[in-house]
Every structure is written in structure tokens, then in C-alpha cells.
Amino acid sequence: MPEVIFNGPEGRLEGRYQHGKGATAPIALLLHPHPQHGGTMNNKVVYGLYQVFAQRGFSVLRFNFRGVGRSQGVFDRGEGELSDAASALDWLQSYNENARSCWIAGFSFGAWIGMQLLMRRPEISGFISVAPPANLYDFSFLAPCPSSGLVVQGNADEIVPEGAVKKLIDKLQNQRDIEIEYGLIEGANHFFATQLDQLSAKVHDYLDRHTDTQQAGKKAS
């Protein structure tokens, strides 16, 4: 899990990168929760997603938004963080020019940033969105959503009510030419404190059905 430092819009950004096997290994970018509420690339949900993609042979990158850890800059209400994510994807693509597919995955605030990046980068072929904060941020830009993907939510989320996410899902599922799957985890709070294995299992199952990669390690249960 090598540490990497790459250039962002406001200075250096700190990340962790796992290179996939094979010249055409798919790529995945992981985005962390809100920087002003303790969110970092080492968040347990983000780390768990990182491990899922790495086990499946992806070249995968997680990184700290500006002002977090060793990343330079200051919090910019989402606008700058979206630029950071675009720079991270540029870096990831520069090392994987022949990647056969590109995925984005984000948790909470990172899910909101990830969905915005999805709208701006047509090469992104799939997404994983965990606890998207539909009650806190406007997701109306997903009109239409350009790619199919998976949304995972806990029904005991104390920060993002499940009803707000379900309302977003209902809108997305009515759009044509894409399929949005909704994975609801019973009893899970916002941070999936005791359900991280269930979260990983749902993501593994979705990727089983929507990618052609084979995981290198043991599948989460």
C-alpha cells in the first residue's frame, strides 16, 4: 500500500495506491467523508472499499482532500474538493493508460463529490455511493445520471435519514438507460460501525455482476 504524493490544484495531495495486476487492470478512485468532521482517507468505510477493489485486481487510489493529513490547502466547501478528485483521477489514469474500466466510490461527503465527478468525466463506467447525504446537499445535478451504480445505506443512519436517500433513489431509478441498485443494510448507522463486513459483501456482490475482474483474495462474507 505505497504512499504517494501528487500535485493538486492547491498543492500536494497525499494518497495511498495499490497497483493492479495486468496491463489493462481497471481503476477505482475512493473519496472520503467531510474533512471538517474528521473525514480522512483512513476512514474505516473508505479503507474497506479500498480493500474490496484491491482484492479484485483494480489499480486503486484513496487520498486526502486538501487540508487533510499531509495534503496542502484548506477546505473549500466542495468546489475545491471536486477539483482535487479530478486531479486524483488524472494521476490514476496517467499510471494506467490502458485500464479497461474506471470506477468511482465515495462515502458520505465523498459520495456527493464522487457523483459530481461522475457527471464531468464520461470515462467513469460505474460507481459505488455509500450513505450519500441527500438531506444535506443538492443531488439534482444527476439529471440524467450518466452511469449505472450501487447505493448502499443503513436504515439506522442518524446523520442521513434513509428516507432522504430512498427519495433520491426513486428519482434515479426512473431515468432511462441506467440501472441503480439500492442496498439497504438493516441496523447500520452512518458509519456502519458493526456492519462493515455486510457493506463489503454488498459491494463484492455488485462487482461480481458488473465487472469481469476476479478478486485475488478471499471474498468478504
Rank of each mutant, 00 (worst) to 15 (best):
Y17K: 07
Y17H: 13
Y17T: 04
H19A: 14
G20H: 11
G20D: 13
K21G: 15
G22S: 13
A23P: 11
L30Q: 14
L31I: 03
L31M: 00
H32S: 02
H32P: 00
H32T: 02
P33F: 06
H34T: 02
H34N: 04
P35D: 02
Q36Y: 10
Q36W: 09
H37A: 14
H37F: 15
G39Q: 03
G39V: 05
M41G: 00
N43W: 08
K44W: 01
K44G: 00
Y47S: 09
L49Y: 00
Y50Q: 00
Q51W: 03
Q51L: 02
V52T: 11
F53A: 01
A54F: 05
R56M: 12
F58D: 06
S59E: 09
S59K: 06
V60T: 03
V60Y: 02
V60W: 02
R62N: 01
F65K: 10
R66E: 04
G67Y: 09
G69N: 11
G69V: 10
R70C: 07
R70W: 07
G73D: 13
G73C: 13
G73T: 12
G73M: 13
F75C: 09
D76S: 15
G80E: 08
G80Y: 06
E81R: 13
S87F: 05
A88I: 05
A88K: 06
W91S: 07
L92C: 08
L92Y: 09
L92V: 08
L92Q: 10
S94M: 09
N98T: 12
A99W: 09
A99R: 09
A99S: 12
W103Q: 06
I104L: 00
A105E: 01
A105S: 02
F107W: 00
S108D: 09
G110M: 00
G110K: 03
I113F: 06
G114A: 08
Q116C: 01
L117S: 03
L118Y: 04
L118W: 07
M119P: 05
M119Q: 08
R120G: 07
P122F: 04
P122A: 06
E123L: 01
I124C: 01
G126W: 03
G126L: 04
G126F: 07
G126D: 03
I128H: 11
I128R: 10
S129I: 00
V130S: 12
V130E: 11
